[in-house]
Design a protein around this nucleic acid. Structure first.
Lengths: 153, 153
DNA sequence: TATTGTTATACTCTATAACTATA
DNA sequence: TATAGTTATAGAGTATAACAATA
C-alpha cells in the first residue's frame, strides 16, 4: 500500500521566506522614499546617474538590465519631477544623454540616508556576524545563479 | 576642513542583495508555473484554498493580507481558468464561498513540485547548514518585524 | 446602518513591438 | 539597412473607493 504525500507548503520553501522579508524591506523603503516624492525604481535610476554622470539611455538600459522603453518611461517621470535633464547630442542627432540636475544631485544623498535607515531598521536586529553571514550567503547565490540585473521593484 | 562623504551605494545595503536574489528566485518560479498556465499569485491562492477547503473571500483576504478587491480579481481569473468554484451561501445571501474544483486540486501538487524544484535550483548550491542558517536568519527578521503577509509577487 | 462582495479607477513595473528620426 | 529613442499596448500587481445586495 502506497502512502500518499501532501503537496509541499508555501512555508517549506526558502524562496517564500526570502520573498516575504524582501517584500517587507522594499515596502518599508518605498514608503520612506515616497516622502521625497520618488519610487524605489526612481531611486535606483537616480543613484546610477549619480555615478555615471551624463549617459545615454541605451547605456543606462544595459547597466540596469532594463529595456529602452522602461528607461524612457522612468526618464519621463523624472523629467516631470525636475530631477534630471535630457540633452540632445549635436554630433549624432539620434542620440540623447541623461544627467541629474542640481535638484537631483541634492536628492540622492537624502535618499541614500533613507536606504541606510531602512537597512538598519530591518537588519539592525541581527548581530554583526549574522549580518555579514546573510550578505555572504545572498552574494553567493547571486554569483552562482549569475544574477546581475539591478532589482528595482 | 570637513571631509565630504559620498552617498551610500546600492550594493552597500543588505536590502539590495535580498531584493536581487528574491527577484531572481521569483522570476524563475514565475516562468515555471507559467507552463501550467498560472501566475505566482495564483499558486499562492490555490495552495491556500487547498488547505482551507471551502472558504469565504473575506477570510481569504485576511489570511493572505490582501484586500477584498484583490481577492475578487484573482478569483475571477481562476474561475475563467476553471480551477476553482464560487458558491452562494443559502443561509446568508450576501456571502459566497470559494473552493478548488477537481482540476484545481490536481494542479496544486504539480505546482508544489515546481516550487520544490525551483528552491533546489537556487539553494541547492548552499551546504545544508548554510541553508538552515539562511532560513533561520530570514525567519528571525520576519518575526522581529512582524512580517505576516503572504508574499505573492 | 453595517457587512459581503463586486466593480471601477488609477498607478507602478514589465515586456513586446510598432514607430520616428537619423545615420 | 541599422541604430537611438519614443510611444503604444497589454498584463500583473497594488490600493482606494464607490456600489449593489443583504442583513
Amino acid at each position: 500500500m502506497l502512502s500518499s504525500s501532501s503537496p509541499s507548503t508555501l512555508e517549506a520553501h526558502l524562496g517564500y521566506w526570502l520573498r516575504m522579508v524582501s517584500n517587507g524591506v522594499s515596502l518599508s523603503f518605498a514608503r520612506k522614499v515616497e516622502c521625497e516624492g520618488v519610487t524605489v525604481a526612481e531611486w535606483v535610476f537616480l543613484r546610477a546617474l549619480y555615478d555615471t554622470g551624463s549617459v545615454a539611455p541605451s547605456q543606462l538600459a544595459d547597466r540596469m538590465a532594463m529595456t529602452k522603453g522602461a528607461i524612457s518611461k522612468l526618464a519621463d517621470r523624472l523629467l516631470e519631477k525636475s530631477l534630471i535633464e535630457r540633452r540632445a547630442n549635436p554630433a549624432d542627432r539620434r542620440a540623447h544623454t541623461l544627467a541629474l540636475n542640481r535638484e537631483g544631485r541634492e536628492l540622492v544623498p537624502r535618499l541614500a540616508a533613507l536606504a541606510d535607515e531602512n537597512d538598519e531598521e530591518f537588519f539592525g536586529a541581527l548581530a554583526p556576524d549574522e549580518r555579514r553571514r546573510l550578505e555572504q550567503l545572498l552574494r553567493k547565490i547571486a554569483e552562482e545563479r549569475e544574477l546581475t540585473s539591478v532589482p528595482v521593484d
